[in-house]
Structures are given as C-alpha cells and as structure tokens.
Design a binder for these strands. Structure first.
Lengths: 200, 200
DNA sequence: GTCTATATCTCGATAGAC
DNA sequence: GTCTATCGAGATATAGAC
C-alpha cells in the first residue's frame, strides 16, 4: 500500500542517462560524446552519472552498448514474424531501416557500429560488449533461418551477410544522405535469400 | 641542375602528417585522434601541422579522407584485373580484406567508414568528403561491372551492395576478432555475382 | 619553414554540502 | 541520492623566436 501511481517523472534517472547516452552515441560516437552532454540531455545532475556508474565513461558505454543491442535485437522478430516469407522479410528489413534513417534526418545510425569501430582497438571491455551484441544478433538470426529450413552453417553465414550488409549500408547511406545503399544491399540479400530458400 | 637526388628524408613533412593521421584515424577514429599525436607519429613539429593545414583539424581530416579514399580505390582494379572472372574477383576481395585486417591485429579498419559514422552529423565538410569518396568507389565499380556485361542500373546496385557488405563486415570482424563476417559476406556477394553474370 | 612555449577551453573525474 | 564547484590532464589552436 505504498501508493505507487504513475509519477510525473516516471522514467528513473539512471534510465534517462542510459537513453540519452545511447542517443548521443549514434549521433556523435563514443569519443565524441562528453559526460557533461549526457547529463544535460538526460536532464540529470552531473554527479548522478558517477553515482550510478562509478566506473565512469567506460562503464556507462558498456551498458549502453548492451542495452541498445538488446533493443535492436527485438527488430528481427518484429519484422520477420509478420512477413509472408524470408525474402520479403529481408527486403522489408532494409527498407524500414532506410525509412527510419531518412526520417531522423540521416542522424540515427546504429550506435553499436560506430562505437565498435571507434573503440575496438582502445577499450577491451567495450570491444567485448560490442562483440557480444553482434554475436547475439547472429545467433538469433541463425536460429530463425535454421527453423525456416536452412542448415545451420548456411543460416549462420546468411545472417552474418545480412548484418554486415545492413551495417555497411548504414555507413554509406548516412554519408551520402540517400537510402540507395540500403535499397541496393537489401535487393542483393533478398536475391540471395530467394536462392537459399528456393522461393521466388 | 639543382642536384635533386633522393634525399634521406625523402617523404616531405606534409605527406608524413597526412599518412600518420590516416593511420591514426583507422585505429582510433577522428574524434579520438589528437593533433599532438598526429605530430608525434609523423615525426613533425607540432606547429608544422598548422602551417600546412591552417584550417586545423577539420581541414586535415578532409584531406586525409580524400587521400585515403583515392588509395583504397586503387584496390578495385588491383584485385579484379588479375581475376579470371567477377565471381572470383568478389570472393578474393573479401578474402584479402580479411587477411589484411587479421594481419594488422584487427586494427586496420577502413578509416572512411569510421570517420563517416562519427562526423556525418557534426561536420558538413567532412561528411561531404566521405560522400565523395564513396561516390567515387561506386562509380568506378559501376563502370567496371557495366563493361563486364551488366546493365548500368544493375552494376550500380551491385557495387553499392559490395561496398556496403565490405564496410559492414569490417565492423563485425573488428569487434568479433574473426574473419568469419568477411568470409560470409564475400560468399553471399559472390553468389549474387554468379547469378548476375550468369557464370558458375 | 621549423620548432617551442603557451593561451584557452573542455574533458573525465572527484569532493563535499545538502 | 541530488547537485555544485572544482581539480588536473589533455584538447585545439596561436604567437613568436629562430
């Protein structure tokens, strides 16, 4: 009977910090994002960051990567479950990614990819966090495509190709300010899917 | 008759600065690379950077991107010219990329991709430099594959898919410390090439 | 053109009042 | 737990002797 109703500031401070950092990472990267800016965007006092993340910038970065990775993992079933077949699923995945990127003013790239490129040679804990996120995506895709009829090796290789193409197309699309790379990559992978799954 | 023999310090200061910065960018990114570190790695006096690049970090970054982009563009004919057919060329391209990345201790990613993700939302001049580099690659690939029998639209889409897959596979490979993403992406694109070019 | 010293700013991180 | 003031280090950039 503690009277837990939805409070006005329903999002806890710690959560706001993680969300704000995730948003900044995909716009400016890890090294380009300052802790003061995170605090400002999260509307949290500066000291609260070090209260919740005593490990500092690196600990915050690790958690942001894992959390963002988990959220993006939800997109896989969200797109593929309603799709009539894997070929359509692949094409839709790339199309939606392009629409979202364009709608954000070419700002919202994938935070994991940016951070992975920046810190893979600098911070081993963060590199491992990125690796675990990618591994999780690949494993989820492998299981799905295996269930849809591919043998596990094929399924894993195809998933790796999809994730790679998606991340790379994001890079080009963001720089070129065009969805063309995402459309082209999606088309190529959809054709590969048609070949693998034997559909048209 | 000015006696121009190969001098001991045959690489000019300005050149050393650009090369050192390019190397640092692909290891630590743009924001993660300091001007002092560039000077140190280039074995150049700190002030010389601002003598040659009065526009500061951004001007240096722009030139590094364009120069590195031009160097990487040379790899396309270097790999595809000796290849017996486009399918083999595609596969070789991804295989060599993986071998190089691994040989560098998973350090030498593509500097353009890293910088493109970091600054596309921050610095318009640098975003344009990245876009021009990518456009150049895509145009070169389009011309080559058109000459090999594809119609221009197919050739352009296929080139975009290749570059996207390559850049994305680099991201995963660097984080996972494995060439598996590059091999899988190469396999998928080689299969697509076989389909497009009608070879086996 | 080369090189050093330094100005100015912002970074990540900490201390301590409340 | 919240918030402010501030530290020391490192950043970019500049001034000026040589």
């Amino acid at each position: 009977m503690t009277g837990q109703v939805a409070a006005p500031d329903r999002v806890p401070t710690r959560e706001r910090i993680v969300l704000a950092a995730a948003d900044l990472y995909r716009r400016h990267g890890y090294t380009g994002t300052g802790m003061k800016q995170v605090a400002a965007d999260a509307e949290a006092p500066f000291g609260s960051i070090y209260h919740f993340f005593p490990g500092g910038k690196e600990q915050l970065g690790e958690e942001v990567i894992r959390r963002a990775g988990g959220m993006y993992a939800l997109l896989l079933p969200a797109v593929f479950d309603p799709a009539p077949d894997p070929v359509t699923g692949v094409r839709t995945f790339f199309t939606l990614a392009g629409e979202h990127l364009k709608a954000s003013g070419w700002q919202d790239a994938c935070p994991i990819a940016t951070v992975a490129l920046e810190v893979s040679g600098t911070s081993e804990p963060m590199r491992e966090a990125c690796a675990e996120v990618f591994s999780g995506w690949v494993q989820a895709g492998t299981e799905r495509f295996t269930a849809e009829g591919l043998d596990p090796e094929q399924a894993r290789a195809f998933t790796l190709a999809i994730v790679s193409a998606l991340e790379g197309a994001f890079v080009l699309a963001r720089a070129l300010r065009s969805t063309e790379p995402l459309d082209a990559a999606g088309e190529a992978l959809a054709a590969r899917a048609a070949e693998l799954f034997g559909a048209s």
